[in-house]
Design a binder for these strands. Structure first.
Lengths: 293, 293
DNA sequence: TGCTACTGTGTATTGCATACACCGTAAAAA
DNA sequence: TTTTTACGGTGTATGCAATACACAGTAGCA
């Protein structure tokens, strides 16, 4: 089903042929056509999932009108996930919420996997615009990182799915798009901006895990104290265990001043990462010819 | 079942009482007893899972000897996960591999959740000792980060489960333990070592996602080219899409020199993060009184 | 006025986790 | 030794989730 071939929008065939004719000699620039050429190799199932995320699902005119849009269905699923966790998102539960039978959902998504793809992308949402313009690239990147972390904590069920598994939907790209601008303001070249993108994104995702864990516990009705006790109980097993002398020492070390909160801790780490990036930026500026540091 | 109360090993009750008597006045130091006190609040189910990871499961002498050890069972499950993915790890599959009926497994683990806890911790394994002693803390930390990433890629099914969900087992702690030593060599105080620990661990986990995704694809029999095509197809949709001008520009920018491999890219980012940490270390050394940078 | 693509229904199948009742075993208690 | 009893493992049954398949109603289009 759904066999209407979509022509690459806005890109005439002529250019495609030209790119092919150019051959491999000077192919330094990736084009949309390269990607389309490669896409024939993709597992049809995966390609289908990707298409479902990106295609505009314009109805064909025949037959009765659908009772909902795919987006309605996804919204219903997200609401269930928010309220009762990802495990509660069964085809039956979503269908019931919409007043459908279970099988009706398969008119909207071919299987649950594709459905989840859509739920995840919707869950990512769009990065917020900063309320007032932030001056330098550093503050902007930091703002982005905090926003992404907040988003992950707001929907902790996102972390129950592997993040980088293909396919990536539009919102996933939106988040990346939003941080490129400030990163470009550093004056780095494209390749380095790409590297910094993955540094920031990597840190943000990885360093959000603890907060996500707490958020998930909250969503499951656990109190903060209970979560702290549960995590602390595991970590505390290091105390007195000969396998973990250093960790135990760290855990029991007297703290000067009050302990940093989780949010401050994230920001502290973020500042270190930004320091590292800034250092590179300055080096690159002062010695523009020298790469591969 | 399993009601034998384990006394905190090696810590006499006397000390526990003393700690209680000390009251809250000067409680800057976390003790094992604090943690034990808090642990009564934990959801019994969670506590049970944690205990199963940490307890030494000494058999009581009665009845027939078990045909396997819990470790055997976990090993069998890991082998299935390695060969056929996490989804193939069903109670039935594991039992069959061991020559048991499905229900026999429930003599080893009360439910699949607890079983998975054990599988994950076993999957993490132990951090490798560096073959030759590495000089400075920087190289040691870098070595650790690469090792952790390699571990995650070797068992990509680990990433199919939420990482930070309680409970944490011994191997999880082992990985942390291993990086504290080099971090302590920086001369930072305990609190800051803790911060740096989460910076490094956060970056390592988050920035490994792409490689994990590739590893998972490989495990599913996908060729590298196919994976690149699949990911590239999604990213390539940015080209010509007005929502992603900067990302598209990044993607299609001419690259000087050959593109960095994924491994080099991870290391490049790691060096930035280490730069940031080093900067802080130097600052802290030169101005030992000034915190909260 | 049908034709036909398309929407939603109802039923059946399959695979999985797991509750429960049961049997034999071997160390502990008598 | 004999008896007791906790424990290892079996077999059957239940409930839930995803989903295949056949069917019924609907509404543009020829």
């Amino acid at each position: 089903m759904d066999k209407r071939k979509k022509q690459s929008p806005g890109i005439p065939n002529e250019r495609r042929e030209k790119a092919s004719r150019a051959g491999h000699q000077a192919k330094r620039v990736l084009t949309r056509d390269d990607i389309l050429d490669a896409s024939v190799r993709i597992d049809p199932d995966l390609r289908r999932r990707s298409e479902l995320l990106w295609e505009d699902r314009s109805r064909s005119t025949r037959g009765p009108k659908p009772g909902s849009t795919p987006d309605d269905v996804v919204q219903a699923a997200m609401q269930i996930a928010d309220e009762e966790g990802l495990a509660a998102v069964t085809m039956h539960a979503v269908a019931t919420k919409l007043g459908f039978t279970t099988m009706a959902l398969y008119r909207y998504f071919p299987n649950k996997e594709a459905f989840l793809d859509a739920i995840v992308d919707a869950g990512l949402g769009r990065p917020p615009r900063p309320s007032q313009p932030l001056g330098n690239w550093r503050d902007q990147v930091a703002h982005w990182a905090h926003a992404k972390r907040a988003m992950l904590c707001a929907r902790p069920w996102l972390a129950e799915l592997p993040f980088v598994a293909a396919p990536h939907g539009p919102n996933w790209l939106c988040w990346l798009e939003a941080v490129i601008d400030p990163l470009s303001d550093t004056g780095l070249n494209a390749a380095d901006v790409g590297e910094m993108l993955s540094v920031i994104d990597g840190y943000t995702r990885g360093a959000s895990d603890t907060a996500i864990s707490l958020a998930r516990a909250r969503a499951r009705g656990m109190s903060d104290e209970e979560w702290v006790a549960a995590v602390g109980a595991d970590l505390g097993r290091s105390i007195g265990d000969p396998r973990f002398p250093k960790f135990a020492a760290l855990l029991t070390a007297p703290s000067d001043g009050q302990p940093r909160t989780m949010d401050l801790s994230f920001d502290f780490g973020l500042q270190r990462v930004l320091d590292g990036i800034e250092l590179y930026v300055n080096k690159a500026k002062s010695a523009p010819g020298v790469w591969k540091c």
